[in-house]
Amino acid sequence: MSLKAISVTLDDETLKRIGQMAAAMSRSREWLMAEAIKLYVAGEGRFVLEVGQGIQAADEGRLIDHADVKARWESKRGVSRA
């Protein structure tokens, strides 16, 4: 795996907070920012995949009625229907 340097423009407050966090973790600011970006990309990647699957399901007509979704949700929460 090769690493590439990039440039990011941040406001003073964010950069200060990154510096404080990095110091508290005994890590460099660069390490902390790289880890933050990795976590963001992983999380957003999952989100984009799930949205894509939802769109495909809707396009194929695989939908669930709102009342059914609500009933399932309420049953998981232990809410009784009155």
Rank of each mutant, 00 (worst) to 15 (best):
G78F: 01
T14Y: 07
K38D: 08
S75G: 03
A57V: 06
R72L: 13
V41C: 08
E74W: 06
Y40L: 11
R29V: 00
A67I: 03
H66E: 12
A22G: 02
I64K: 04
E35Y: 08
A57F: 05
A57R: 13
G19T: 02
I64S: 07
A58Q: 13
Q56S: 12
R62S: 07
L49Y: 10
K4A: 12
E30W: 04
R62V: 05
L32C: 06
L39F: 09
A34C: 07
T14L: 15
M21F: 01
S80M: 12
L63P: 00
D12N: 07
K70V: 11
G45P: 02
V41W: 05
Q56E: 09
D12E: 08
V79S: 04
A24K: 04
T14S: 12
M1Y: 02
A22T: 03
E30K: 09
G54I: 04
S75P: 00
D59I: 11
W73V: 15
D59H: 15
G52S: 03
L32N: 00
V79R: 07
E35Q: 11
K16V: 06
A58R: 12
D12G: 04
A34F: 02
K76N: 06
E74V: 02
S2G: 12
R17C: 10
A71P: 01
E44I: 07
A23S: 05
A23V: 01
I6K: 14
L32K: 01
T9W: 05
E30I: 04
R81H: 06
D65A: 15
G19A: 04
E13M: 10
L32A: 04
W73C: 10
R72N: 12
Q20L: 11
A24T: 03
E13Q: 13
Q56I: 06
S26N: 14
G78W: 03
K4W: 03
D65E: 15
A58M: 14
Q20S: 07
